[in-house]
Amino acid sequence: MAGTELTSAEYIKHHLTNLTFGNHPEHGWMLAHSAQEATEMGFWAIHVDTVLWSIGLATFFSFYFLKAAQKATAGVPTGLQNFVELLVDFVNDSVRGSFSGRNDLVAPLALTIFCWVFLMNLMDLVPVDLVPWLFSLAGVHYMKIVPTTDPNTTFALALGVFALIIFYSIRIKGVGGFVGELTGMPFQTDNMLLKPFTTLVNLVLEGVNLLAKPISLSLRLFGNMYAGEMIFILIALMYGGGWLIGIFGGALQFVWAVFHILVITLQAFIFMTLTIVYLDMAHAEHH
């Protein structure tokens, strides 16, 4: 139990610190020994735990799916293929329901987002102290195993989607069409004197609307997962408070974990659905 020789605040802070490798202004390239050092590294640092866990999970499902895809036949599906087809069908239905254009990227993108985000969220259900404790035995002192509680991950996903929104907006409607969409709505006028004014107002409104997409997408996922993780950590603190509170904490953890199964699935689904909807909006012509 890491909490025994730490105060509660230190325990929480310890749990919320990533394993960071970066360029420290005084000590050069190294693993940060504290949250303080990690902050001092600035932009040129990388969260080793976040990157490795997320890539590990993505590799896991990619090759799992690849195996199913290679063996996929039109005959009676079995075990693995059945499960994968269930997911593919589910994603396909979502895409067909919300996406009216024709784009071969959207469905695989949605599948990747759903599976990846779900698996990253799923790490939240692993008891908060288990993996860090195992790594501490190996001499690694910081280990945050839920990549979606790292804003870097959620912002990376959202920015990827945002880039696609911009790309397809411009590709479908042209630069003029995209700019027109940003400046020509919702206020329209033929009066030459009023035109600069409405254009400015429209640009502000639509600009906020556009920027709100990636920000809300990433912050929603991050906020939900961060809060969930925080509650798990707070519950874990109870294990240090005697056996009675410990048992109560155990029950709480179970209840919260059951509830969290819903949250992690829902968040993965919301992220996927919003991605589809945003890309559909990027493809749609406004009149």
């Binding site: 970066g22 990157v51 912002f155």
Partner: peptide, 14 residues
């Protein structure tokens, strides 16, 4: 909780 190079790494792996 810092935005750093991890963002780029995650973007690339995505």
């Amino acid at each position: 909780m810092n935005i750093n190079l991890t963002l780029i790494a995650q973007l690339v792996s995505f």
